[in-house]
Amino acid sequence: MHPKRKKRLILILFLVAGVGTAVGLMMYSLSQNINLFMTPTQMANGEVPVGRTVRAGGLVVAGSVERSDQGLGATFRVTDGAAEVTISYDGILPDLFREGQGIVALGQMSADGVFIASEVLAKHDENYMPPEVKDALEKAHTEGKQALESARY
């Protein structure tokens, strides 16, 4: 390779590597701010000051959804597998909202430890399948569980 071209190639490689390192370090140090939401564990550890507006995210705990008799209000708990947080929301929940579904709520922690949400967004995962397949999977799952339990005794 022509020495002049080699020099330019090396210069470009340095440019890309340098920018990559700089941006990488920046992203790493800012990662707390890049995260869209706080997890229930972080909230249980008291990392969220009372009254500060943040987003909280997690999976809706099965059987925890209580709808109020009047109006749209609902309370439910979300979990990340380690800790749970109760969220109270007065508004229209998204169509995808259901037990076991991931959600992201915008709101504030109240003094009594309930997260008061002003907006609730639903997350969906990267798995796509027809309803029949989902039913079959769930059936196989419960049957497998039963088979496991019957085998145990």
Binding site: M27, S31, I34, N35, L36, F37, T39, G57, V104, L121, K123, H124, D125, E126, N127, Y128, M129, P130, V133
Partner: peptide, 22 residues
Amino acid sequence: WWNTLHQPATLKLTEKPSMHPD
């Protein structure tokens, strides 16, 4: 790397895609 509202990739280079073949 971060938690986002957007879901992770369905088509992966190393794993089977998490989508029904149809």
